[in-house]
Nucleic acid binder design. Structure first.
Lengths: 152, 152
DNA sequence: TACCCTTGGTCAAGGTACTTGACTGAGGGA
DNA sequence: TCCCTCAGTCAAGTACCTTGACCAAGGGTA
């Protein structure tokens, strides 16, 4: 039995959760990469974003964000429409299909949450969330902009 | 204040730890990507591996593993030598410089560990490790082969 | 109202890290 | 001894990002 430190344990537990999310969505025909997930998160929380805003959020160039949105549009997850706030921008918004993908991911996470509560008991699960939140805050992870750097 | 679920918290805390690791190593001139980290982990724990074994461990083709090892060799982190177990293979082993990088990463993780203990207190830090281990085990994350899939 | 500069977006070319496909040649098992 | 397995390489193609250059519509300011 190898002794795992906190960083290794964090990585292993996180991989377990997100690989499962990825597999579950892929089984439903939603094969998306991390950058797509972050984009969905932005569009779902703001109701829509321009290409430049997506680029800023992901920490990539406008060109890369444009390509990524083109792909999501072709696949039917987003649509482009005029931006009432800024007439130069094309606002990307989630389509019904896009929202369905968001709900599917959210559903997997709710399962994970429920299984964690069952596995650990409600008290330890709550303690886990509190501890993780403290670590994330201390590490400055709650202050965007999000950078699309790979996790080791 | 947004309410974060367990998956989001896991991702944020993990990102905080590994971005910090990456920054700290980069400041020492060791600019490595995730795949390199996984390779170092393998070479450090086994004492050496062939290109095919690295490919298997990372979940990539032999060609990709070969390119990756070429880069590490050029940068001085590994050396190739005959494999006593299999005369067809070229064994990749860590050089002194490679071991120094491993020690540097380990040192950052020890700091993280210490800061977590200070932030949470020793009891809650231990509880955190135990909970994460349970989650990782339940998710099957402790049974290799490691797949180099991106974390969402 | 006219002007200019900011800015959202695109075109083009290049680089990196992977892939598939085809192959070589040394090893090692029967 | 023979054959076939297998580690490794060469070549070409793809996905996803970059830098650099550019356009044209907006919108702030005089």
């Amino acid at each position: 039995m190898v002794a795992f430190g906190l960083p290794e344990l964090l990585l292993l537990a996180t991989r377990a959760v997100f690989e499962r999310t990825h597999e579950r969505l892929a089984a439903q025909g939603v094969a998306l990469r991390p950058a797509h997930g972050y984009t969905f998160q932005l569009l779902a929380s703001t109701g829509g974003a321009s290409g430049a805003e997506v680029a800023e959020h992901l920490g990539v160039t406008k060109q890369a964000a444009s390509q990524l949105l083109d792909g999501l549009e072709r696949a039917g997850f987003i649509a482009r429409q005029p931006d009432p706030r800024n007439h130069r921008a094309r606002l990307a918004v989630l389509t019904d299909q896009g929202w369905a993908a968001v709900r599917a991911a959210t559903a997997v996470w709710a399962e994970v949450e429920a299984e964690a509560a069952q596995l650990l008991g409600p008290d330890r699960a709550q303690a886990l969330r509190a501890a993780l939140l403290q670590l994330a805050e201390a590490g400055g992870a709650l202050t965007p902009p999000l950078r699309l750097r790979p996790v080791w």
